[in-house]
């Protein structure tokens, strides 16, 4: 589904992504973890071209996303992205947040978009807040709306960039629950997260990144029981201490 071939990225002299060549399969739930500054957010943001790469190739669904004449907007419409800081539109209601893109991009009529969005809000448990404004919602609620907003475009892939890092601990669970449900429904997901419990329970594979490289790729069982790379071992040891 997603193919990365020798992807490299620089910020000035700093080599942020080093020769990344990997695949993500259909229906796979991939968790990317690692210390701060390892390049995990950068990597996930290259997939919908929020960051541009300096060398290499990225294919989504068999198409080179950097091909000449590639439509960036069409690419992004086909990928759902959930941000660490939710980024809901404060001047629109919860429902309007979810219907804006489908309607303005001509994917659905207002009525269709409304119905579908209400269905999604039901699924994330926030149908009763449809006419509220984002500033009336808690962080956990806003993030659930953000997920519904991304799903409203019916994307085949969902990307999550540290979705629970900005939440108070008591709200992390409600968001992870939504993500677990999505995973069980077969969505292809790439999640950058520090939530190791989620990774252990839900991920099909884990990538451990450090300094722009993927140092270890393993199933959750192998990764947590038997990490190979010394830096992965250090990372897990630090996490256990918290």
């Amino acid at each position: 589904m997603i193919v990365l071939d020798k992807v490299n990225k620089y910020y000035g002299d700093y080599h942020a992504l080093v020769d990344i060549s990997e695949r993500v399969e259909h229906n796979e739930v991939l968790v990317v973890c690692g210390p701060s500054g390892s390049g995990k957010s950068t990597l996930i943001r290259t997939l919908n071209r929020l960051e541009e790469i300096d060398a290499g190739r990225i294919e989504i669904d068999g198409r080179d996303i950097h091909a000449k004449g590639a439509d960036v907007n069409a690419l992004r419409a086909g990928i759902g992205f959930v941000f660490q800081h939710f980024n809901l539109f404060p001047h629109l209601t919860v429902l309007e947040n979810c219907t804006l893109a489908p309607v303005k991009l001509g994917r659905a009529s207002k009525a269709e978009a409304r119905d579908y969005a209400m269905g999604l809000l039901e699924q994330v448990g926030l149908a009763h807040k449809a006419d509220a404004y984002p500033n009336a919602l808690s962080g956990g609620q806003q993030q659930r709306v953000a997920i519904a907003r991304a799903l409203a475009m019916r994307p085949p892939i969902m990307l999550f960039d540290e979705p629970t890092s900005a939440l108070d601990p008591e709200m992390v669970g409600e968001v992870l629950q939504v993500m677990r449900t999505l995973a069980s429904q077969g969505m292809t997901m790439v999640c950058v997260t520090h939530e190791m419990g989620f990774a252990r329970d839900v991920a099909d594979r884990i990538w451990f990144m450090s300094e722009g490289k993927i140092l270890e790729k393993a199933t959750p069982q192998d990764f947590f029981a038997n990490p190979q790379h010394p830096r992965a071992q250090q990372f897990l040891a630090d996490r256990r201490r918290d």
Partner: peptide
């Protein structure tokens, strides 16, 4: 983040 999330939804 406002512009980014709008563009991530596919809006030009």
């Amino acid at each position: 983040g406002q512009l980014e999330s709008a563009r991530s939804l596919g809006l030009g």
